[in-house]
Nucleic acid binder design. Sequence first.
DNA 1: CTACATCTTTGAGCGCGCTCAAAGTCAAGG
DNA 2: CCTTGACTTTGAGCGCGCTCAAAGATGTAG
Lengths: 128, 128
Amino acid sequence: MTTHTLRYYERVGLIQPVGRARNGHRRYSEADEAWLNFLHCMRATNMPIREMQRYAELRELGDSTSLERRKILEDHQAAIAGQITELQKAHALLTHKIANYKKIEQRIRIGGPQTAEPEVDCTLASAS
Amino acid sequence: MTTHTLRYYERVGLIQPVGRARNGHRRYSEADEAWLNFLHCMRATNMPIREMQRYAELRELGDSTSLERRKILEDHQAAIAGQITELQKAHALLTHKIANYKKIEQRIRIGGPQTAEPEVDCTLASAS
DNA sequence: CTACATCTTTGAGCGCGCTCAAAGTCAAGG
DNA sequence: CCTTGACTTTGAGCGCGCTCAAAGATGTAG
């Protein structure tokens, strides 16, 4: 996380004005770091800034917002589950395509028939 | 996939000029659809357009580019694996945080002690 | 014949999430 | 005293991946 990003997060309200040293420099407490870590983790899993802003806002309001905050996290967790599924599908598809390329390379090396089993853009459905 | 996106992909060379009906309208063949499906799958897993362009370019050049194309796919597959790991970590973290929220809500309902076990921004390391 | 919908083209615009530039302040080292 | 360097501020700029607007051609229904 760059200083630029930290400033940006501060500007858009993701983090509250943080403590300063005597010279005016920012000093991040451990609590700040934990919160930043959490933010980073959410961003890394594609939570939009707007949603993080909403969450941060509720957090400022205290425990009474627990339910709403929990809903946000549950929704995001579901989104993550969906992403994992997508990624796993793609991963499997790539395994097939890579194997196919290995076959092609084999054919080229042995100077075999160049026309048999042409390359196919296998879809997820028919991942041959 | 919107028509806008299809046009865009054509413009940037991800798909070759496609067949037309007599009136000039585009007609996508099954091969076209398979390729688009593949592109969609790669985009959905965060392959940058530039990399897809590179791949498409190599594809136009035929089997002799097999090795390089395979490398691209292998790299992307590794990237996907990394993403899955990240997502799984976040998923686990959220499970903990959600459980914590449920506890808080419980405390609120029974009017219990409001100060015990304050909320914590659990990190990945210490996901309590 | 007249609407209306659906495609075509080109080029511009936009939302997101940073990322950087410019100018200034302060603290320590030589 | 002077330089170096790390921070500060504000506001502008950018790369990505679409997304849309405007104007025009063509086909189908009433």
